[in-house]
Design a binder for these strands. Structure first.
Length: 649
DNA sequence: TATCCGTGTCATTTC
DNA sequence: CGGAAATGACACGGA
């Protein structure tokens, strides 16, 4: 019988553990007080403009971090259901018992799950003191889970399953402390657990219940980073499977992966542009990416044949490769977070440093180009050049399509053209190695966002994603990649301009003028440079303009709604005020009647309410005054009164 | 196939 | 005066 009671308690404990896991994951106060007070998701309603695409996600995170959890969140249903079950559990036993469990088990999740091997045999004689501190420590542990392994170990040493029993015994022995904890601990736990729970909303219940997920992500990150660095080139074929395998180990980094995915999405670059992928070089492409990632220096130094443009692109090529790799990683696992900093360090260091490294030899290629080719590509060479053409898919750019599709990569990872007679016959020689920085710029170019960090975007994501797959790139993919190139980028390539579009657009005007004047560009090239810069700036200006327009529309819509609500409120207040005034007037009239009825005139008769009224003065005096009738009636009335008085006298 | 929406580009004005 | 920014208008592609 005693044993059955113990098992019953154990079962209740386990059930309560589960309920505490589920039931306290939502801060009900935030639902009741936070949601209806304001609209935290306002930016989500701003429309599908690309300028806002990122904001809903972060807004969502913000709302999770704050008190604005959407009331339709399924966690809420779990909460109410679990609360009902919890009440049933409470009704089964001591009224104190489940409350205590509910209090500390909320943050005992980690320790419980970590000790998943079964009930611990340790007798924690200091569970009460641990309990008092656990409410705070555990919540902090929950917040520091990603980077603190020590805290986890501390948690593991805390009250465990049997510790709960021990605590129950001790709780029954100490009623005073029990009552204090009953009243205070659950509330504080609930509040303090909100942040952890809201994080858990993203991580999922599985992440909480799986002991594997309790490993601090930092450890996993280091481990994965080391594993990645230890990869040899021959192992790179297994990279995809490795990533897939690691994905299962990194489920706890779902949120991290998501956030990095968003951030990295901005930094994605095209593999075609940066690496010169040929349709039939799927496997070597991966090798090149890895090499460019881990052998940045050798990439540049081991290619004596590379044109000076390679030196120009040294800062860009590794970045592009890193972006490619991390972009793919971030879509599969949390590994992207390891590379995130490196990616943006590259971005920050990129700048325009390549501009200083231009070799005059690079300019030599400009003179070799057949002017007819340039004429075909940009017959106007003015502002309205090819405004009616379809860019890469237009007939005029067919040569560029074949040119782009002829990209290949050499041994050292440098990009270059494969032999393409149709191109070379036009006078375009192997200058493509000079396009590494331009590839980067191109990869940075197709973005429709409004801030410079978001320059890294768009087709490059899909291209890099395709790049990591081992399937060979088909012609259609190659063509689609070519279509992803901007027309200006293609023009710049054709004109052999050793600057990226991004560089051309973003460099200071003084530097731009210096480049135009001091690098021996032909007039056509100068015109193209100016056009590229003008179009690029105008594109950004148009994006900003549209964003402002949407902001204005949204703001006006909000203002309309606000004013409409204010008008409705004022109308209701007016009606209520009128109704109140009527009621008060009736009360005053009735009160005046009562008072006048109790007053007596000189003859001892009650005052007629029809003839007298009460006047309240500012000094607080209340005076009975006769009602002033219209002049005639009042005068006649007074006369009759006087006559009556005179008669009486 | 028509329509809507997002985007790029050009022309123009303003700063 | 030239560059940049802002904006209306138009064309184009995708859903």
């Amino acid at each position: 019988m005693q044993i059955s009671k113990i098992y019953s308690k154990e079962g209740l404990i386990q059930l309560t553990i589960f309920l505490s896991l589920v039931g306290l994951r939502v801060d009900i106060d935030s639902y009741l007080s936070g949601y209806y007070n304001d609209a935290p998701l306002i930016e989500i309603n701003l429309g599908p403009s690309s300028a806002y695409i990122q904001t809903p996600f972060h807004n969502f995170r913000d709302t999770l971090d704050g008190n604005h959890v959407h009331p339709k969140c399924p966690e809420l249903d779990y909460f109410f259901a679990s609360r009902r079950l919890l009440d049933e559990v409470k009704s089964l036993g001591s009224p104190r018992f489940p409350t205590h469990l509910n209090a500390w088990l909320v943050h005992q999740v980690s320790a419980t799950d970590k000790g998943d091997s079964g009930p611990s045999t340790s007798n924690d004689t200091d569970t009460s003191s641990r309990l008092e501190s656990l409410g705070f420590e555990a919540s902090e542990d929950g917040e520091h889970l990603p980077d603190s392994g020590q805290d986890l170990s501390d948690l593991g040493q805390g009250p465990c399953n049997t510790g709960a029993c021990g605590f129950l015994k001790e709780a029954s022995e100490d009623d005073v402390r029990v009552k204090v904890e009953e009243e205070s601990v659950p509330v504080t736990q609930l509040v303090r657990s909100s942040s952890l729970e809201q994080e858990s909303l993203l991580e999922g219940i599985a992440a909480l219940s799986d002991p594997v997920h309790l490993h601090p992500p930092s450890i996993d990150i280091d481990q994965h980073w080391n594993n990645l660095l230890s990869l040899s080139v021959t192992d790179l074929d297994d990279l995809d499977s490795l990533v897939t395998e690691r994905l299962s180990d990194l489920d706890t980094d779902i949120t991290t992966a998501i956030s990095h995915d968003v951030s990295l999405r901005d930094a994605m670059v095209t593999s075609v542009g940066a690496l010169g992928v040929t349709p039939e070089s799927g496997e070597s492409r991966i090798v090149t990416q890895q090499r460019s990632l881990f052998r940045m220096e050798s990439t540049g130094s081991s290619n004596p044949d590379a044109s000076p443009g390679v030196a120009l692109g040294l800062a860009a090529l590794p970045f592009a490769s890193v972006c490619n790799l991390t972009g793919n990683m971030s879509q599969h696992s949390g590994l992207g977070c390891c590379l995130d900093e490196a990616v943006f360090d590259q971005i920050n260091q990129l700048g325009l440093e390549g501009l200083d490294t231009i070799d005059t030899q690079l300019m030599g290629c400009l003179e070799i180009i057949d002017p007819q080719v340039l004429k075909d590509l940009d017959s106007d060479s003015g502002l309205s050049v090819e405004s009616s053409s379809r860019g890469p898919v237009s007939p005029g750019s067919s040569e560029m399509s074949s040119l782009s599709s002829s990209y290949s990569e050499d041994e050292g990872g440098a990009t270059g053209y494969s032999s393409d007679d149709s191109v070379r016959s036009k006078g375009i020689i192997d200058y493509s190695t000079a396009w590494s920085p331009i590839d980067l710029s191109e990869s940075l170019w197709h973005d429709h966002s409004y801030s410079s960090p978001a320059f890294f975007d768009q087709p490059l994501v899909t291209l890099s994603h395709k790049g990591i797959k081992e399937e060979p790139v088909t012609d259609e993919e190659s063509k689609s990649n070519e279509r992803d190139l901007s027309r200006d980028e293609l023009r710049a390539r054709t004109m052999c301009i050793p600057f990226s579009v991004l560089q051309i657009v973003n460099m200071p005007v003084e530097e731009f003028l210096d480049i135009i004047d001091g690098h021996g560009f032909s007039p056509e090239q100068v015109t193209l440079l100016r056009d590229i810069r003008r179009r690029g700036k105008n594109k950004l200006a148009a994006q900003n303009c549209r964003k402002r327009k949407l902001d204005a529309i949204t703001g006006l819509q909000g203002e309309v709604e606000r004013l409409r609500a204010q008008r409705d409120r004022l109308v209701r207040e007016k009606q209520l005020t009128a109704k109140t005034m009527g009621a008060v007037g009736q009360q005053i009239k009735q009160l005046s009647r009562d008072i006048l009825a109790r007053l007596r005139d000189d003859s001892g008769r009650p005052l007629d309410p029809e003839q007298f009224t009460l006047q309240c003065w500012s000094n607080g005096r209340v005076v009975v005054q006769p009602i002033r009738r219209p002049a005639i009636s009042s005068s006649t009335g007074n006369k009759t009164k006087k006559r009556e008085k005179e008669k009486k006298q």
